[in-house]
Design a protein around this nucleic acid. Sequence first.
DNA 1: CCTTGAAATTTCATGCTTGAAACATTTCAA
DNA 2: TTGAAATGTTTCAAGCATGAAATTTCAAGG
Lengths: 158, 158
Amino acid sequence: MVSAPLASLDAPSENKERLRLWIRMLRASRTIEGELRERLKTRFNSTLPRFDVMAALYRQRDGMLMSDLSRFLLVSNGNVTGIVDRLVTDGFVVRAKREGDRRTSIVRLTEQGMAAFEEMAATHERWVSELLNGVDETDARRLSAMLKTFRSNWEDEH
Amino acid sequence: MVSAPLASLDAPSENKERLRLWIRMLRASRTIEGELRERLKTRFNSTLPRFDVMAALYRQRDGMLMSDLSRFLLVSNGNVTGIVDRLVTDGFVVRAKREGDRRTSIVRLTEQGMAAFEEMAATHERWVSELLNGVDETDARRLSAMLKTFRSNWEDEH
DNA sequence: CCTTGAAATTTCATGCTTGAAACATTTCAA
DNA sequence: TTGAAATGTTTCAAGCATGAAATTTCAAGG
């Protein structure tokens, strides 16, 4: 090797570059999240966390345990309790007691919940596409793949 | 032209691709945010919002108005009030009354606040770099540029 | 003056979020 | 069997987040 160890010498610049990336990703996320929150509120009188829970339940028509929900959504147990409580109040979701294990309860979308979600989901998808309209499909795929890799690595490590 | 209008025919697939991108970006952000939150809590007994406020004030040594802070951090006015209140309680920040306009108050880091931030910032930068260690510098630059473009477009439109 | 509107901030109600503690139930080893 | 660990959930306190209403101050125009 001709030069000094590059890895350690490069580290500071690479750190800065990653920090910049993180800050920009955070700002982009917050911008989009803020916009989606506002639209969900005014148009559907709902919220992002409620939408996320309903989306998860829509994927799993048979229902999910509370702990499945919190694991999938990357939020705490206690958090899900509150969101589901409010969805139950509104009639979008039911907690079904299970015979086998009385500690758990299976959470499901109601018919009303399904219908409400389908309407929201279609609109939500258009909104997201509109908000990301500056990103063409090629970039979207590349970026998407990069983030997927990040998450898989993370999953493997934790 | 040989084929039917591509833009409209492609739209559904492009929508899906962008939706996937958004979901992955959100999950990546939440993963990193969660990790940083936990570390800031255990190591510095602090939080991400506090860190953000201190970072903004560190950049602007002369201090910032509350409204500058909320605009820069992309959060609401009322939100900043509470975070700054707690930072003041801890002695990291001061609200300086201004002669010219008694409605406003300039918020500044104290000496203690500067010192505390410098320590946190160095560690924070290492953490972020470590969490993003799967992303090489080239990818980081590309992604970063893409996100910067997104934000500029957004700024222009709003 | 003085009042009317704009600007900066705080307060408030509501909901999201976490981590820890409390609770209920199940499982399993002694 | 029975006691202790494990599992699933809820409760709680504290902090974060929003948007709307209230407050204070400023800036002009009458």
